[in-house]
Nucleic acid binder design. Structure first.
Lengths: 227, 227
DNA sequence: CCGACTTTGTGAATGCGTGCACGAGGCTCG
DNA sequence: CGAGCCTCGTGCACGCATTCACAAAGTCGG
């Protein structure tokens, strides 16, 4: 509640205090649990219960939430709707995020049709592919546009987030063009390490890496059971 | 960068020394870079160059590799083919991993057709869906089977890895049935927190969480730029 | 065979994230 | 109005991961 500007904040430009990366990565999980609670007409929730739903330690949850402010009530818990709004706001989900998908193959198709998108502020505004045969095709109510329209897409539709769903060989090139066009955040599905300039956010989702990690632990389990 | 999810580690058991989770998560990246180097007929590579390709610090790369053994040659670097084999072996990729995909919607289709699978030891052996209308359908050269054939799939095809590509509401139920059937590793694409017993590895891939994380940093950048 | 050069492997320092444990604050009931 | 109970917020300690810096170990040219 004493939300104002504290005197001895170290630096972080505008905000209260810097929120640790690990915490930021968990906020969406808490948000999802809160949405479910709200749907089941639950008014308040304790840190213990919410932590349980989110699959984390209760102390960690409280510490995470404390970075946003003191939004709980001692002896009671957290107001579901209120906390839900606070996290949404902190994550920037109270506004609309236009998204452009590059690479309309199998995965691009699936992503374009994914309903979980629009649910929370994200809106696919354009589909792009380098293949002239794909350009013009209709997918999920949009027509596929050529790669060199990226700048126009960013300027006109305001796309700030780009999703790369191309083959690995094209990923870096596409990333460069997205950055040049003015995209500030990239989500890379291509099985390839790509690099972006400072100031551009990059996250990756990599199916085969996940499988290989599972393989490691599965093998280990197997050998220790057999041997 | 604290990577998303950690599987519950089975046991240090047999191996030399326990390989840190963070290292395991990077080995597949190194592997991929080594494959590229091998394709371009490169015989040896220094830690600096390989680290560069993988997008990590050179010291970190050397420490990571040192958990596997002393496979480098001082003054020279690492033999590409040799290191490639060692990492493959450590990750359990010298053997074949039968995979079952549950939930043949948009995403399930895309995954079933994904070619990166077979590339390195993973082989989709069965597709499963709860919807009777989908059962029997042909996808990627396989026919979709009903949910209650899971035990048979695990026993007959030896499927040890299950991929969940269902809606969130079905994810936990499917996970339970996979575990009951004897699957030891699960990769969850459903936007839902699921829990599995100790001894079962679980990793998750969550598109909307990734987008929300990007939204956070994008917003932060935006507000500080605009004022 | 020796000395200069290159690059690995690792001890040590630092930083970040986690979880415990407890004080502070707020509610409820008598 | 006070006692007792509940739950949040957080100081602190611990452990894992990252990074630096350097000795060890090998190559290569003369």
């Amino acid at each position: 509640m004493p939300d104002q500007n504290e005197p001895d904040v170290p630096r972080p430009a505008s905000r209260r205090r810097a929120i640790p990366e690990a915490t930021v990565a968990r906020l969406p999980v808490y948000l999802r649990c809160l949405v479910e609670l709200a749907e089941s007409r639950t008014a308040t929730v304790s840190s213990e219960r919410l932590a349980d739903l989110a699959g984390v330690n209760a102390a960690k949850l409280r510490k995470d939430l404390s970075y946003l402010g003191s939004y709980g009530t001692r002896g009671v818990g957290y107001d579901v709707e209120f906390l839900l709004f606070q996290i949404s706001r902190e994550l920037g989900l109270t506004q609309d995020w236009p998204v452009v998908i590059v690479g309309i193959g199998n995965l691009g198709h699936a992503l374009a049709n994914y309903r979980g998108f629009t649910a929370r502020g994200f809106r696919v505004v354009a589909l792009v592919d380098a293949d002239p045969n794909k350009v013009g095709e209709h997918v999920a109510g949009l027509h596929v546009r050529p790669l060199d329209e990226l700048p126009a897409i960013v300027d006109d539709e305001g796309a700030a987030i780009g999703i790369i769903a191309t083959p690995a060989s094209a990923a870096q090139e596409v990333a460069d063009r997205l950055v040049d066009a003015g995209v500030g955040s990239i989500l890379n599905f291509a099985p390839s390490v790509i690099s972006v300039p400072d100031g551009v956010s990059l996250r990756k989702v990599d199916l085969s890496i996940e499988l290989q990690i599972l393989s490691f632990y599965q093998q280990r389990r197997g050998t220790s059971a057999v041997g």
